[in-house]
């Protein structure tokens, strides 16, 4: 004989709701805390490593080092920023622009520096230089007229960092940056 289903076990379904008030309390505390410590402006840095300033009194070992250095190939790339445009060159030659006279990269039609063209020229140059055994193939020296604003120099430096080669790999362009000044 089968048992008759118990009448007592016929419980009503309990309608329960999750109590989320403690979670809400936690949120209310956490959100102001995180807002206070969030970084709203992302800062970044550009590294410039200048060789340490030479102290007076040259040691005797210096001359030997000097001789070794002279045998190495130096590119000595310089980038000069003037109001008329940007000139690329080194101690031996200047890279010619579209016009025979004037800077390598001129201004765009609306009077701004033509960074796209500067990049193009530099990548072209980098490809020629690569693998020729220059010791300073990643180095560039930036020089500028006295009243060129800081932002322009940063923009030029941004364009000197990396490039993509034919396979799409990111390669260093001329990331080691030094500064020099035109003596007047």
């Amino acid at each position: 004989m089968a048992f008759k289903p118990s009448l007592r076990s016929n419980n009503e379904e309990v309608d329960m709701e999750l109590d989320i008030r403690p979670v809400m309390n936690l949120m209310v505390v956490l959100i102001p805390l995180l807002i206070a410590s969030a970084e709203w402006v992302k800062l970044s840095i550009i590294e410039i490593n200048v060789p340490p300033a030479k102290t007076a009194g040259v040691g005797s070992g210096e001359s030997d080092q000097q001789q070794v250095k002279e045998k190495q190939l130096h590119l000595g790339l310089k980038i000069a920023i003037a109001h008329e445009g940007i000139t690329i060159g080194n101690a031996v030659a200047l890279l010619a622009g579209d016009n025979a006279e004037g800077p390598t990269v001129g201004l765009t039609a609306d009077g701004k520096y033509d960074f796209a063209k500067l990049r193009e020229k530099l990548i072209e140059l980098k490809k020629k230089v690569l693998g020729k055994g220059f010791v300073d193939e990643n180095r560039a020296v930036i020089t500028a007229s006295a009243d060129i604003p800081y932002q322009t120099i940063i923009d030029v430096m941004d364009n000197l960092q990396t490039y993509k080669d034919a396979e799409g790999n990111v390669k260093p362009l001329f990331p080691e940056i030094n500064f020099s000044k035109i003596m007047d």
Binding site: V41, K42, L43, S44, I45, I46, E47, I48, N49, V50, P51, P52, A53, I154, M157, F179, K181
Partner: peptide
């Protein structure tokens, strides 16, 4: 340039230029 020159003369030759990303 003057500031950078002074820094390198004063033994702080690794300069980091702070910028906004």
């Amino acid at each position: 340039f003057k500031v950078m020159f002074t820094c390198s003369k004063s033994d702080f030759y690794k300069m980091r230029l702070l910028t906004i990303k």
